[in-house]
Design a binder for these strands. Structure first.
Lengths: 154, 154
DNA sequence: TTGAAATAAATTGTGCACAATTTAAATGTG
DNA sequence: CACATTTAAATTGTGCACAATTTATTTCAA
């Protein structure tokens, strides 16, 4: 029987295992920055937006990373406690919390710059292949996130 | 600058986001079985091995799913509490815990059989494309898990 | 055979994810 | 204005992941 239920036939398991394996590869590199992997992703967004001169609210982070305040609030508190990030209630709208980088948070970027290269070096896989995989994953992601019934805008 | 640090350029983020998005798609389907996604993966292995007449130890599960006892022990206790799984100390080697399915655990398989098909239907993506993606992910996984310096056996 | 080393699970502690609820502020409507 | 609705973040509670340690058992060697 062409067993749909077999572990090996489930795309889900490949994704699950590959994601954890990649994360495990990042871990020792990020240990040097004293960042967890999700913290690293948050910092990436903050660095990117700061460079573009954009202010960042908790909900902006959430939209970019697909995470809610239940995940982000405690994570951001930890980053703030470490002195990397400032969390301030917006003056125009008291519901909003605005995030900004401290000097220390900005400076950490320089260390972080070396992480992607180090990761690639340790991976022994053709970069084009990774790029292709990334594109496929992004395509899958956009299909998943498109509400059912929606055709791709022609 | 060809910014290696940009979120969009990080394979890691695509994997992270795609994995969570797929998991989120499984969640409502698995809710009918009252299983979480990792519990579902554990049951897949147990069903598979039971069918092959193989006994399963906690460490077998761990090797297959790349999870350690810190994750598996509490998860298995929950499955046992629900009456799906039996956990028994092996008689030959008291260090080992052997897992087996209860009648109820075996029966749950029938409900689970429908999950993969339902998932695919809701996904609106060509199955061949998913297959190709799965193969790429498995290749990536095996590269990551191959200790550095090892050439693929020629 | 006794004690050291190895092995299998369990335990402890931290940090995500995510559902569900709560709190507080802003917006919209009669 | 008053009050229902919406919105943004925080809070609460559950269940993974995973590092580090512990406990119990087995194996191996002197």
């Amino acid at each position: 029987m062409n067993d749909l239920l077999a572990l090996d036939n489930q795309i889900c398991f490949s994704l699950y295992a590959a994601n954890r394996a990649i994360t495990a590869r990042y871990r020792p590199l990020l240990a040097g920055l004293e960042l967890t992997y999700p913290q690293y992703l948050v910092m990436l967004v903050l660095w990117e937006r700061a460079q573009a001169g954009q202010a960042t609210r908790v909900s902006d982070l959430g939209a970019r990373l697909r995470l809610d305040s239940g995940t982000l609030t405690p994570l951001l508190k930890r980053l703030a406690m470490r002195g990397l990030v400032r969390r301030e209630r917006s003056v125009e709208d008291e519901r909003v919390v605005t995030l900004s980088l401290t000097r220390q948070g900005e400076e950490l970027r320089e260390l972080a710059e070396r992480v992607p290269h180090k990761l690639l070096c340790g991976l022994n896989i053709a970069p084009e292949r990774l790029l292709a995989l990334r594109n496929e994953l992004n395509a899958l992601l956009s299909v998943i996130e498109t509400p059912a019934g929606k055709e791709p805008s022609a």
